[in-house]
Amino acid sequence: MEYFLQQLINGLTLGAIYGLIAIGYTMVYGIIGMINFAHGEIYMIGAFIAVITFVILGMFGITWVPIAVLIVLAMSMIFTSAYGWAIERIAYRPLRHSPRLAPLISAIGMSIFLQNYVQLLQGARNRPIPPVIQGGFSVMERADGFNVSLSYLQIIIMVLTVVLMFGFTRLINHTELGRAQRACEQDKTMAGLLGVDVDRTISLTFVVGAALAGVAGVMVTMYYGVIDFYIGFLAGIKAFTAAVLGGIGSLPGAMMGGILIGLIESFWSAYFTIEYKDVATFSILVLVLIFRPSGLLGRPEIEKV
C-alpha cells in the first residue's frame, strides 16, 4: 500500500511533465494536422536553458529559490518560444501546400539538426546541476521504516502544471487567439476569409506549445538534476504516445494521457522491470493505434474524400 502510494506520487509528477509536452503535440496536430517531429527537441532545449540559467544564477549568487525558479521558467519559456516559432517558420510554413511527406521530412531534419546543434555547442556529456529544491513531507510511514514521501519539488511541479493547465484552458476558451485557433482547426481557408490571420495563429500555436515544452524541460531538470542532448528523443515519443492515448487534438486528453503514461511508467518500473519501461510505453502506443486510434477523448477521424 505504502509502496503503491509512493509510486502514485512519482507517476503523477512524471505524468505532469509528459502532459505539458503532449499539449504541444496535440495543439499543433489540431491546427495543421501534422505531428511536430521537432517538439521533443524543444523540450530538450528548454532543459538546457534551465541548466544554463541555474548555473548563471549560481554565479551571481541568486539562490533564493522562488526567484531563481521564476527566472529560470521565464528564460526557458522565452527562448523555447523563439525556437518553436523558428521551427514553424522554417520547416512547416513554406511546405504547407506540399505533399504530406515533405513537411514530415523537413521536421525530422530539423530535429536531427537541433539535437546535434546542442550536442556540438553544449557537449555530449551529461549536464548535472545541484538539487535546487530539497526536502518534503513524509506522508506515511510503514512499520519497517519505508517512508512515503512527497517532496516540495513534486508539489511545485504538480501545482505549476495545474496552474498552467487552468490558464491555458482559459486562453483557448476565452481569448481571441483561442477563437482564431479553433476556427483554423475547422477550416483554414474559411477562417482566413473571415479575417483570421491564419499564419499568425499557426505561429502562435507553435510558440505556446514550445513554451509549455520549455516549462516541462525546466521541471525535468529540477526533478532529475541531470540532462543530456538526447533526452528529447524518448520524451518526444512518450509525450506523443500520451497525446494519442488521450485523443490527438484534445487538450484535456493530452493532459490525461500524459498522467496515464507517467503512472504506467512508474508502476511498470516499480512492479516489473525498469529496463523495459520504454518498451511498455511504446507497446501502449501501438495498442492504442490498433484498437482505438481516436484515443480516449478524441473524435473519430473521418477521411476527407
Binding site: 511527406l101 514530415l104 518498451v279 511504446f282 493505434l289
Partner: peptide
C-alpha cells in the same frame, strides 16, 4: 500489420519508436 492502416505521420512515429525499442531490447 497494425500500423499500416494508419495515416502517414502515425506510421512515421511508430517506426521511429520501433527502431528505438529494438535497440532497448537488444541492450537489456
Amino acid at each position: 500489420f497494425p500500423v499500416l492502416r494508419l495515416r502517414g505521420d502515425y506510421f512515421a512515429i511508430v517506426t521511429l519508436g520501433f527502431g528505438e525499442m529494438i535497440r532497448i531490447i537488444l541492450i537489456n
